[in-house]
Design a protein around this nucleic acid. Sequence first.
RNA 1: GGCGGGAUAGCUCAGUUGGCAGAGCAAGCGGCUCAUAUCCGCUGGGUCGUGGGUUCAAUCCCCUCUCCCGCUACCA
Length: 749
Amino acid sequence: MKRRLITSALPYVNNVPHLGNLIQVLSADVFARFCRLRGYETLYVCGTDEYGTATETKALEEKVSPRELCDRFYEIHRDIYEWFEISFDTFGRTSTPEHTEITQSIFFDLDKNGYISSQSIDQLYCDTCGRFLADRYVRGTCPYCGYEGARGDQCEMCGKLLDPMELLSPKCISCGGTPRPRSTKHLYLDLPAILPKLEAWMKEASVRGFWANNAIQMTQAWIRDGLHPRAITRDLKWGIPVPKEGFKDKVFYVWFDAPIGYISMTARLAKEKGFDWKSWWQKPDEVELFQFIGKDNIPFHTVIFPSSLLGTGKNWTMLHHMSSTEYLNYEAGKFSKSKGIGVFGNDAMNTGIPADIWRFYIFWNRPETSDYTFTWTDFQEKVNGELIGNLGNLVNRTLTFISRYYSGIIPEGTPDMAFWKEVADREQEASELLERADLRDAFRTIFSIADLANKRFQYEEPWKARIDNPQKASSLMRDLCYVLKDLAIMTYPYMPSTAKRLASFLGIEIGQGKLGWADLGLKGEFQRIKKHEVLFNKLEDELIASLRVQYSGSQKEREEKEEQNRKNEGKLPASIEKNQNNRFDQIIDLRVARIIKIERHPKADKLYIETLDDGSGSERVIISGLVPFYREDELLGKNIVLVNNLKPAKLRGIESAGMLLAASTKSLEGNEIVEVLTAPNAKPGERVLLEGSSIENLEETISKENIDIETFLTIPLYAKDGYAWSEGQRLMVRGEPIRLEKVMDGKIG
RNA sequence: GGCGGGAUAGCUCAGUUGGCAGAGCAAGCGGCUCAUAUCCGCUGGGUCGUGGGUUCAAUCCCCUCUCCCGCUACCA
């Protein structure tokens, strides 16, 4: 029986985990608890991933050291996981001496074996601080709007995305000095060179370790699309120093050191407890490594980390089973930290709903094969229906019955072997599923045993039988007590507190040295019920309704939801159309502009760089992917339709301040036809409006803010009958509709 | 545009050596009453996204298309 080394994805330190993030940690916890109960020697390792730009920047903003910031967030994480009763053997962190030591030694081995190369790139360097500056560490004057405090990656005033190199009079934000461009060298992990080893390993390991389907697919896609050398160093302070001549002022890139955290956290625990970490991590014949992650993390665990280990030439304990889940979504959309959407760990704690209820819901619906949507209604239904209605009710009705009619003494009787055969079959099935870390199916199988018991309770009608046929009723109640014992054991990995309470009702205990997986079935003797009470209280409508409001998205989204509801009720389609037009008016600012200069993008095949006269007096540059469809001279001098308030974006290193509109369709032969919208009779700067709009009220309603491309794309624009349309109205300039010649019908974008 | 994933009952989702399509919840009906208005039984409900192909037989295998989600890009 191999020992089991279990890890869950290391949470990045400066975020508070939400329910979606918690799935990994909880999943590994269930698996670890199961393994211990079944007698496997088990080690569950997790901890915070702390190094990197994000932490360093946030610390700088809050004027604390990265260490202090991490200390604070480490506690937040630890408290949340503690509340959820995660049974880590260790919950460590990556900012430890052990981590540095092991990361560096892995690097030494890789370097020694020739898997490390180097390459130079240009970045801003601050002489005073003596270091290269990450994008966000530079501020200067925005070359577009003149704002003096623009950040290196984006100007907060005009919203333009920037390259730190284009800032006028750039300043280092920590010392105020003037940085200058300087070439810097970085180290690369030569993944292509390790590929043969990786492929050989992956081919076998994925089958033997019955990886989740998404892990196999994604890994194969990565390998198929070609691996490139990956930079493993960064010009930062908050990280592990690179122990190589010429790179001493650099640190390792987080993705390189983070997975090594699994190892170093084990090493730190080993030091405390007095064992050798290598007895876990360099014993592939004795140890199986199970890793629990989300699908976004797959390539790091199946390609990059294994490559790092294989490249050392040492005999590492490699990934055995990959349990990678899909996403948990929230109500209408996604869980999102930045937008504050969803239920976070601390929210769950504040609801007053016990951890085991959350654990129940997470596992009942664990997104194993496809995304799953958390809704409050669903939460309430599943908890009240399954957890309370099925399991809770079985416990309560059984124990109440025994205490009322048998004075709490568990009656003698003869087991119903047909019933126990069925129970044993399902227990066997659940065990097998758990061995494969199919946590959801195993959980549901366990509940099906409670369901079976409820059915028998109902069918045998002990409330009648205890008078007509006392022997039958006694035997039934005795069997049910044994079922409750089994349920207590089997639900222990999933809902430890609840399982312990249930066990205590029966006067038994679960855990190491107590009852475990081997005690399933008709084993042990019962005397009497110690006590009993309801396991959970129902989730009331009022509570759920108030939580839904409390944790719903932004105000704006709530309004949209209401609008959706109105739409579903099928009210007043006319007014909705009107709404859409208002939306068009409020969001999009279209202007005529003349192309006064056009050239090819030096680093792209399909892109033109167009300089425009947009009537504002100053020139404006946009990029368009029109090379396959137009020659330069066909476009030069044309009056095009410009999206005036689109957020700028970089294309192949050059910024585009807006976009022109073009219609496209497919010819009968399947070739793409593209036609730029033009307004030959208009002047640059003139507004393009929807038919029927008057310019006076539009000037008032138009948003001054730039919109992003996603927002823009929510406005339907299309070509029909040789005109450009939006929501049933034509686009007009100077009172004339915009005409198309080549693309009579098609999309506009 | 590329890659990946999805589309199955009103809702959330299962469904692999291809064989008349499933669960739970919701809806309707009936029963029981030990139990937290719970539990048990029955019923209704789906052209398995579109159009082709392979096959005696396709939700499943192959191709086309449409729509949705994620990532990504020389979309802007």
